[in-house]
Design a protein around this nucleic acid. Structure first.
Lengths: 365, 365
DNA sequence: TACCGTCCTGTAAGCGCTTACGGAAGCGCT
DNA sequence: AGCGCTTCCGTAAGCGCTTACAGGACGGTA
């Protein structure tokens, strides 16, 4: 009767050592590619293969102080359970994939965790993840500055599209340049005199930066700027559509051009305008921000600002990694954006891209 | 001069114990909600808060044999670097989100890892993940049966849309019922006499099951079935479009209805047909499988088989969890599907859904 | 032959936690 | 007062690895 090694017994390095007739230290050395004679090496590898041994990550991590895991936290779209899912997955997921690919290159794996908008015990959820990781990447609007500060003395933190703090790093794109180029194009090239910024979440740093740049630049260009609560959106197509609808219903005149906080917003705005028979860009021009893949397939194709989404994720990881491995890490990486002139601004069919800023990007994906 | 506790020193349970004036055992007990006097409890929690202590996951895992991490491996679309990304993200990501939500309910986190199509050292990559997790969920076409068997004696495994093995569990949807209902609808309700199945990857168990069910049911219904290499697709819109194009170019007559392996394929087929001026469903009916969100927005809206995508993910986790925590776990969970009759089959505008099978689903998301 | 340097190996300590075990303290009872 | 019971606590072992350290084998040199 072949007796099972140790019943439910998990295979350990001791089993491998016994089978190979060497000490556990030798097994460990072989597994980690440190010095060992070819002879020993062979015997260990054979034993590992025969037993199909997989070293325990927790024990490794405990022993050498590196889990090779990075936690990523992002917001789950609780608000919209099923609708629109096609699009809403996009932006965050592309970033996440960028993170993942970069992490793999360093032998790290990624602990993905989404949180609901009003999660009951956000703090402990995130702390639990932090305990399982060597560092964290936090998407937009996950934790307050205070929350970040608290977490930061447990693990290194990189925020995405946030603001760097004394204890955390940040990666974002060059919102100001993008908006400036856009406004200049609308005012200088097209001669539009009245503009509005249809905003995103008011607590989003990206949105704030875009709004500020918009106001500054539009004022500098001498354009008439429409503002007020009517232009408060929330990054969603839904919200934007409702905004536009209610303004139209109220009989208010629209500006000549609407600069939307992101592509989703632009999409919603264009839908609403189309539904009401307002011609885009003939009567009202509309622009986006992000350049998600669908942007170019809209009718008319959306003029927008291209963000290197995948690279943002990859860069976030690289920055975090350099902090983890060497206490280094650029505190505030700004990635360049590109104005994508298509047709929703009023331009004729003319596929082109203009590079606006070229600050040093952390790494290319 | 305020001396820093221990320089780079990570905070441990000892620091908390010292600060609270209790033993580490008491700290541990409080942290895990075991018996302790209110007095002790308060002091410990206070110390934890003051130090913003986060227990080390690796040490916990090592000590109590549970990492509370599940690994998920899926295929990255290397083939299509940027195109089409909007859609291709969809299916897998929805499943993953289902997994994640279910995992959170049990205090687990998810280690997400994508692999390239021809990854150099797939085995070791996956082994590394296995070492960091309590169990693994593998998407379609990740590992061979042998690979699964080898991995399975390290950690419990659940495959998605695969086949259960002696050592692994599986979650899939009821392909056969879905295809049967579809074929019956096309033949019985519409009276189509010639059908073809535009297949997916030939090594996908889902595809094989669908193909088999299609042939069986179509034969049983006495329909004329077109087969051959011309009908070999690969789940992508691209592939499907090319298939159709080349058949048309070769002057071959199309069947009255094309049953596509998935919605993507149907989408590609419909595009190609439209491009060639073939009317859908007037001349050729087209159906899909999956019911991704865009399906209902196609022109004409796509008749397809609805899979509970999110639930598949959630169920996969639940099955895995019951294996991890109790050696239980249903070996082959089959989730019910629903025929979604829309218009691409030839039906008039008539929004309706028919439940086909109602096998026990693991859990609702 | 004696000695030193190099290379490989095994022994054992320790990573930060959980938990079995036994002791101490408090209670109610005889 | 003495007993047993319960409740809480601290001590220490151990989870599966990595790695500092020291010992052994070997080869080359004086």
């Amino acid at each position: 009767m072949a007796e099972p090694k140790k019943a439910k017994g998990t295979l350990t390095i001791y089993d491998v050592a016994t089978r190979a007739g060497v000490s556990i230290a030798s097994v460990s050395r072989v597994l980690n590619g440190l010095g060992s004679s070819p002879e020993t090496r062979e015997r260990v590898l054979l034993a590992v293969r025969e037993l199909s041994f997989v070293p325990d990550g927790a024990a490794r991590a405990l022993s050498n102080g590196l889990k090779e895991v990075v936690g990523v936290v992002f917001r789950r779209g609780d608000e919209v359970p099923f609708a629109d899912e096609d699009e809403s997955l996009l932006f965050i997921d592309v970033i996440n994939r960028g993170i993942e690919v970069a992490a793999q290159r360093r032998g790290f794996d990624v602990l993905m965790s989404s949180v609901g908008v009003h999660e009951e015990n956000l703090g402990s959820r995130i702390a639990a993840i932090a305990g399982k990781a060597d560092g964290m990447i936090l998407h937009d609007r996950i934790l307050s500055a205070a929350g970040i500060a608290r977490l930061a003395d447990s693990v290194p933190i990189v925020t995405l599209a946030g603001t760097p703090t004394a204890s955390s790093l940040n990666v974002r794109c060059d919102n100001a340049s993008g908006i400036r180029a856009l406004v200049r194009h609308l005012v200088d090239d097209h001669g539009y005199r009245s503009l509005a910024y249809l905003s995103g979440h008011s607590d989003s740093p990206d949105n704030k930066a875009r709004a500020r740049a918009f106001e500054t630049e539009a004022a500098a260009a001498g354009a008439d700027v429409r503002t007020g609560p009517a232009w408060q959106g929330n990054y969603s197509a839904e919200g934007a559509a409702q905004d536009i609808m209610s303004q139209l219903d109220a009989g208010r005149a629209l500006p000549r051009a609407i600069v939307c906080a992101n592509d989703q917003t632009a999409l919603g705005a264009m839908h609403a305008l189309a539904r009401r028979g307002v011609k885009v860009p003939g009567e009202v021009a509309v622009t986006g921000f992000d350049d998600v893949p669908v942007a170019r397939h809209l009718h008319p194709p959306l003029t927008t600002v291209h963000q290197p989404i995948r690279e943002m994720g990859a860069t976030a990881f690289e920055v975090l990694w350099s902090r983890i491995s060497a206490e280094g890490g650029e505190p505030d990486v700004v990635l360049p954006v590109r104005l994508m002139i298509r047709e929703s601004c009023g331009c004729a069919h003319r596929p082109t891209a203009t590079t606006i800023s070229a600050l040093p990007a952390g790494e290319e994906a």
